[in-house]
């Protein structure tokens, strides 16, 4: 999670670096610390420092960290020649290192030589069977090959040991959703909510999975989680507002034939619809607002 203060600092340093005001190294350090993905900027400024031998020698031992950072950024930007050079110089400095071995594997992965990458990871895993990064890389390797079920399997095995790693849970949840295995995905999202109960995105995703599964109970639960998303975001999440409307309609459809005794008296759906209309009038292109109004009217929400 990146706080507002840090995000501000990143913005400031970035604009400063852009206008040649120095602070490039600080910017790179901050990006690394916050684990941001600004590969193009990192590649540009990192190469600036690496090419300038005076600036490079000023870094001392940190030079190698920069090589690693630039290598990863270059892979992300498809500048494989740069990445190769970085990895090569790291190899020369640390021939036996696990960290460099990982980078080599990633380079192979980036260039699409899946088998070679897998072999490299497997070789490294022999010595360090509990390396979290390597295990996760294997999962992503399977995913990028399009082999989702293998990726799921690897992640499941990984989570059996490292069961407190919520990033892995999220990845697994998304994989399950893409495989339409909603029950399993719901479990993963529950796990995420347990890890970070105040992150609205998990509530939202959980609600969506429940809504997709359907059934009265699930729909009612989904509505509650949409409501909690609204509460946690202060009503700023349009998706959650739509979710409330959709859930209400679906619930009404399911309970149509039954007696109306348990009809809840809450105004949540009409309020959500109202806020949606208001937001669209303010922010969306002009022709969208009437469209929304008619849709909502058809749903009998306003």
């Amino acid at each position: 999670m990146v706080g507002a203060k840090e995000a501000n600092l990143v913005e400031r340093l970035e604009s400063q670096a852009e206008h040649g005001g120095g602070g490039v190294w600080e910017y790179l350090c901050l990006v690394r610390k916050l684990k941001l993905r600004r590969s193009d900027k990192v590649l540009k400024y990192g190469l600036q420092i690496l090419k300038d031998s005076k600036a490079r020698s000023k870094l001392g031992g940190e030079e190698w960290t920069l090589y690693e950072q630039v290598a990863i950024a270059a892979m992300d930007c498809h500048c494989f020649s740069v990445a190769k050079d970085c990895v090569k110089s790291l190899q020369k400095k640390f021939p036996e290192s696990l960290r460099v071995g990982r980078l080599e594997g990633m380079l192979l992965e980036a260039t699409g030589s899946w088998e070679a990458a897998e072999k490299a990871y497997d070789r490294l895993l022999e010595d360090n069977p509990l390396d979290q990064v390597l295990l996760k890389r294997k999962a992503s390797l399977a995913k990028s090959q399009g082999n989702t079920s293998a990726s799921v399997e690897i992640l499941n095995k990984y989570l059996e040991i490292f069961m407190a790693d919520y990033d892995a849970w999220r990845e697994l949840a998304e994989l399950y959703v893409s495989q339409q295995m909603y029950k399993q995905a719901a479990f993963c999202y529950e796990e995420l909510i347990l890890c970070q109960p105040t992150v609205p995105l998990h509530h939202l995703a959980y609600a969506e999975v429940l809504y997709t599964m359907g059934g009265l109970e699930n729909l009612q639960t989904a509505k509650k989680y949409y409501a909690s998303t609204i509460d946690l975001t202060g009503g700023k999440n349009t998706r959650a507002l739509f979710g409330i409307c959709m859930c209400t309609v679906a619930i009404n459809q399911v309970t149509k034939g039954r007696n109306k005794e348990e009809k809840d008296g809450s105004e949540l759906q009409s309020l959500a619809a109202g806020v949606l209309v208001k937001e669209y009038k303010q922010k969306a292109p002009k022709n969208l607002a009437p469209l929304l109004t008619t849709t909502l009217k058809n749903m009998k929400l306003i």
């Binding site: 509505k223 509650k224 609204i230 509460d231 009503g235 809450s266 109202g274 208001k278």
Partner: peptide, 16 residues
């Protein structure tokens, strides 16, 4: 979570 429905209502009322 049932409590959250009421809280969400309050939030939306404020927005309206």
């Amino acid at each position: 979570l049932p409590k959250f429905e009421q809280r969400a209502e309050a939030v939306l009322r404020k927005l309206m």
